[in-house]
Design a protein around this nucleic acid. Structure first.
Lengths: 375, 375
DNA sequence: CTGTTAGCGCCTTCAG
DNA sequence: CTGAAGGCGCTAACAG
């Protein structure tokens, strides 16, 4: 590659100062047409590509771009429905402000520091997990504005979370109200160690991922509180029934931990239905997981929601489009992305936002076939 | 914001030269531990965030990141299934090489120049269209390596295309072989003017988008050649039949032009089926469009493939997951992304690649109900 | 090992 | 309107 031509070369060739040449490119209107043409001509002749952004950047200090950091590889941005929707929110704001968008992967712990320190951006959106303190610290040290999504690193940092626990509770309560008693849980990863399969009490207690832990807690809340709920009394009246209902212990339930990608979800759904074919309702911790349950059920000839009810979590676009459309806990995913990007662009003091969740009843939930509280 | 502290400040505070301080951060092993500690201590005390990449960048010349340019807004990267799959390919290679990925939107013609000239990258992948000469020229002028996908800008530039025409022909031939005679075409945009709806000969001839034009041509090829094909003779034997088959003229067919997003596709599918309820087969120019036809058919109580056959194009992941799974023309989307990224990273002389397409028969095509060549 | 020096390419005062 | 000069923050080359 021949030595690149610089602004100075063009200026010299055109017989003007570098300052003037610079103006020709950044503010052409303030330079005399005659001179401008001469400079442009020289630029063309020398094959000058225009001001190099690298130089401009250093000078300007501002990059006009934000980076989104995930603890996964770059393909994750385009693979996971949830993250896609989130990114649509982020991208929308960047579009509005004419800002750029850089994707950064912090998968490799060793390289994460380097990646984060090299990103040419004005701020970060970090998709973090509980155990990722190191990542957070790295980001903080970089000294740029940042916002953390899905976990709250405490005051002093921007964060956006949802009430995972309340949402999960909503899901379980919905099923309980429908009369379900035999539940299976398809869980997101509990810790980032690649382990999947049946979850016991020990593992459950070791939850490193905040969302997983809180959703589990939310399910448990619903089971524990079931007997105290008015609708429950109304429906089942009797004291014994209520007691039995209250007696559902999450640690007695079949819980399968699965990776939240297509393959992992399919494997998890299969494992759950293999292990607990008697369940009438599945609580899936994400829509990806729930959709996999739908597929698995179909391939077993199980009709949803007649033979099996399924509730997802997140409400990704695919949920509403599924057949039947998925009942799920909706969180404002795109809004989350928008808000995160706005927090970066607008600056201001650290904010901690909690976005609302709500139950969206669609077509994958119904009363269990034998309507009595099951045995 | 207080003035940011720089390497020079740290060096001064630690009583070492700037060069030494630099080494502490980039090659800590070559500086005496005692000195290193002293520098690190000063850095901590002053709140030094580490070497600013902007400075390093200018010095190093290399960014270690590539940019992907689309003539759409940034959200497109996360919305369109085809582009998502393509980006997975690109991202995979970036992951491998530890490179960064920047997304750049060239929607706004006015701002496109600025955006492209400001992107801090080592090379571009450009998703271009025929009319986008300007975009291409802009990219070329930037003087960085680039590869154009989906159109071939001629020798001298890297490009990756598929044989759109051959693929379309495959699709139409498949339907013809099944015995279909009444076709509807759901077309991608013909020109970037936002027009949708019925397409007449004039509009068809004005095709600005290469892929659309070629796919239309491919369908036409199949119709024109039908009478000459051996299987056609075998199946229908008679001379008159063959003639009639050859007589299918694409300009007599209902063709609806639609935007390739969820909403646009749904509207297009509806328009097509409204306008031509008698069709037994739909040729959709993308899977997104085909999937919308599936939905529309379902909502009309049409059974696919019994009442209606549908062939898509591209083979996005959603195609195989549809119910019934979509028969489509597969192109190696992810591979395309991989190849594009590799071409940037590996450099070398300009290459022009054409990737293969193939027909993938799944569950949305079958013989028409009244099996005789229809009237 | 450490200090000094010289740019990387650009833009923006400040004089003229 | 134009020219000269300084510096954005860092690192590589070269002396000590």
């Amino acid at each position: 590659m021949a030595k690149a031509v610089r602004l100075a070369d063009v200026a010299r060739a055109a017989g003007v100062s570098q300052g003037t040449a610079s103006n020709v490119f950044s503010r052409p209107e303030i330079v005399r047409p005659e001179v401008r043409l001469r400079v442009e001509e020289s630029a063309r002749r020398l094959g000058y590509a225009g001001p190099d952004p690298k130089g401009r950047l250093l000078r300007a200090g501002k990059v006009n771009a934000i980076g989104v950091v995930v603890m996964d590889d770059l393909t994750y941005f385009f693979s996971d429905p949830f993250n896609r929707e989130f990114m649509r929110g982020v991208a929308g704001v960047c579009d509005q402000r004419g800002a750029g968008l850089a994707l950064v992967s912090a998968l490799d712990r060793a390289k994460a520091a380097w990646t984060i320190n090299s990103a040419v951006v004005d701020g970060f959106i970090v998709q973090c997990i509980e155990g990722g303190d190191r990542l957070l610290e790295l980001t903080r040290k970089r000294g740029l504005p940042f916002v953390v999504v899905d976990i709250d690193p405490g005051p002093g940092a921007n964060s956006i979370v949802i009430d995972d626990r309340a949402g999960a509770r909503l899901a379980a309560e919905h099923l309980l109200a429908l009369g379900h008693r035999r539940f299976g849980i398809l869980s997101l990863e509990i810790a980032g160690d690649g382990v999947t399969g049946p979850v016991d009490r020990t593992r459950r207690a070791s939850a490193q991922y905040g969302a997983t832990r809180d959703r589990l807690l939310g399910y448990q809340d619903a089971f524990a509180a079931a007997s105290a709920l008015p609708w429950w009394r109304e429906q089942f009246g009797g004291y014994e029934e209520a007691l039995a209902a209250a007696g559902i212990d999450i640690d007695d339930l079949p819980i399968i931990e699965a990776l939240n990608d297509r393959r992992g979800a399919a494997a998890g759904a299969k494992a759950l239905l293999d292990r607990a074919p008697e369940v009438t309702a599945v609580l899936a911790m994400s829509d990806v997981l729930a959709l996999a349950v739908l597929d698995e059920a179909r391939s077993r000839g199980l009709r949803v929601p007649i033979d099996l009810s399924v509730v997802g979590y997140d409400d990704v676009p695919e949920a509403a489009a599924a057949i039947p459309p998925l009942t799920t806990i909706a969180q404002p995913i795109e809004e989350k992305g928008r808000l995160a990007a706005q927090m970066i662009f607008d600056g201001g003091p650290p904010r901690r936002e909690m976005l609302p969740v709500k139950l969206v009843v669609r077509g994958t939930t119904a009363a269990p076939r034998q309507n009595s509280p099951a045995r």
